[in-house]
């Protein structure tokens, strides 16, 4: 993992957005250059799969380019892009689920699903972030998407519900389950509900 500066140049981003809305392709390309690491990080956290994350990034920017004229500027460009990325990731994961079948050998036995970390190390400091990322990877797609969008990226329930095609109530229930499951993975080192289905 690397530190990456996305905080600088928000005004510059706004200028680029204005230019891109007027059809300036070079300005949009520059927006892509400045934000793609951030977008890729979100896509990877949502999909837990490098190839999928790359596809989601491309799809997100294609959608953004098509819709840039409709961006009203009442939210930051990056937040708008997060929404598009979340929706693209949701669509991609749904499609992937239909296309891919999991061989029986790959299905984990809940009793065998343990993290190789001690609870004391995990989450005591930033040193636990790698373990946290590993634990996030172990969550089912639906639960991981909710917790990443809400607890990592701070999107409101209403936005998450809209972009992932569920109700606000279902989003809240999933967040509750996701936190509980992640807590169990981090501190007890087990995944008690690996075979359960998310809401």
């Amino acid at each position: 993992m690397a530190e990456h500066d996305t905080t600088g140049g928000r005004d510059d981003l706004a200028e680029l957005v204005d230019a891109a809305q007027d059809g300036d392709r070079a300005a949009f390309d520059e927006l892509v250059r400045r934000t793609y690491v951030d977008t890729y990080t979100l896509a990877f956290r949502l999909t837990s799969h490098e190839e999928d994350a790359r596809d989601v990034v491309q799809e997100a920017y294609l959608r953004a380019w098509k819709a840039i004229g409709r961006f009203r500027g009442d939210a930051q460009f990056t937040t708008w892009l997060y929404r598009i990325t979340a929706n693209a990731a949701y669509t991609h994961v749904q499609k992937r689920r239909r296309q891919r079948t999991v061989p029986l050998d790959d299905v984990h036995d809940p009793a065998e699903t343990r993290l190789d970390t001690s609870p004391e190390i995990v989450a005591d400091s930033t040193a636990g972030l790698e373990e946290l990322a590993v634990a996030l990877d172990r969550l089912p797609d639906t639960l991981r998407q909710i917790i990443v969008l809400k607890d990592v990226y701070g999107l409101p329930h209403e936005t998450i519900a809209h972009e992932t095609g569920i109700s606000v109530a279902a989003a809240k229930v999933r967040l509750h389950r996701a936190r509980k499951r992640l807590r169990d993975l981090l501190y007890d080192g087990i995944d008690p509900g690996r075979s359960e289905h998310a809401v």
Partner: peptide, 24 residues
């Protein structure tokens, strides 16, 4: 820790930027 994760960025494999710009 989850909030801290927001400040950690993952470096994509080389070629993602070029292929994204080409797709656009």
């Amino acid at each position: 820790s989850l909030q801290l994760l927001r400040t950690q960025f993952l470096e994509p494999a080389p070629g993602l930027l070029a292929s994204t710009l080409a797709a656009i």
